[in-house]
Write a protein that binds this DNA or RNA. Structure first.
Length: 287
DNA sequence: CCACAGGACGGCT
DNA sequence: AGCCGTCCTGTG
């Protein structure tokens, strides 16, 4: 663990606000100067856009360049994917212009699973609060710049929590789901390392066996974690809304069949459906 | 007081 | 297979 810096030139396909406010992550907070600070794995990192540079600064376990490149998905060509998607139709093109700085983070799988179980029928401020309290209670302390940060607990660490403990931290009815899933992963009834090599449908089926993981949560995990399956298309109320507006035009939005949306997304966006989903989602929700 | 928020689950038909 | 009530908690 040592303090390190890294920087890259500013690019259109990297915007802090787009990346951190598009709903894929819960542990990044905006500072007074407009930069963002967050905790992932055993790293505390601050990211700042300055002049023509993006500056990464923090305490990292390992080499900061490698850590940043992996986490921010810097080796993937977002410009090329945007060009491809822009040819599909004017609306998607518009959504990309609006959120062109989005990148899909490679977040640690275990943390992503628990975070999105907590996200079920919940809102972002509360999700963030719950995850912060869980980390403070069961994670490890990292001090930096006279401030205290806490890592997201490992399965081993979180297994110390009883259902009642979790309830006190504000998880509500999700307490039991987190508790059970933690046990399953800790005992390797589901092995997260082996999961990464399987094909998407099989991974999805396995994730769906975890308590608290339904179709939407499973797809978020597949898209926002190191699994990084760009072809999945998480469908929540916002995505349903925008897909109905753009293509289906059903006056009763709540009646729109999920299967219909899935089919549409696949035939239109193909193996980039997940990327398209993020631009559309961010565009529609912010508007 | 009530509605609702970035779903999952269980019971029912 | 599809439909629907219910599930904690915070906020308006």
């Amino acid at each position: 663990m040592k303090e390190q810096y890294y920087q890259i030139p500013k690019i259109d396909t990297f915007c802090l606000e787009h990346i951190f406010e598009c709903g894929q992550c819960f542990r990044w907070n905006k500072e007074k100067d407009g930069s963002y600070t967050g905790v992932f794995k055993n790293n505390v990192l601050n990211v700042k856009e300055e002049n023509n540079k993006i500056i990464f600064h923090g305490v990292c376990q390992g080499n900061i360049k490698e850590i940043v490149t992996e986490y921010f998905d810097l080796n993937r060509n977002y410009e090329e994917m945007q060009k491809k998607l822009s040819t599909i139709d004017e609306n998607v093109k518009k959504s990309i212009l609006y959120g062109r700085g989005i990148r899909l983070l490679n977040q640690e799988l275990w943390e992503t699973i628990i975070s999105f179980i907590i996200s079920a029928n919940n809102n972002i401020p509360r999700i963030k609060g719950i995850i912060e309290r869980i980390s403070k209670q069961y994670g490890k302390l990292i001090k930096w710049n006279n401030k205290e940060y806490y890592t997201f607990p490992t399965a081993q660490e979180l297994s110390k929590a009883t259902v009642e403990d979790l309830r006190k931290l504000g998880l509500g009815f999700r307490d039991k789901r987190v508790y059970e899933t933690t046990k399953i992963i800790l005992t390797e009834q589901v092995n997260l390392d082996k999961l990464k090599q399987e094909d998407t449908e099989k991974v999805r089926d396995t994730l769906l066996t975890l308590p608290g993981v339904g179709p939407k949560v499973a797809d978020c995990i597949l898209l926002f974690s190191t699994l990084k399956r760009l072809e999945v298309f998480p469908i929540d109320v916002w995505v349903r809304r925008v897909m109905n507006e753009l293509y289906i035009h059903n006056p009763k939005e709540e009646k729109v069949n999920k299967k219909e949306i899935e089919k549409l997304a696949k035939q239109k966006y193909g193996n980039l459906a997940g990327i398209a989903q993020q631009y559309l989602f961010y565009w529609k929700r912010e508007a």
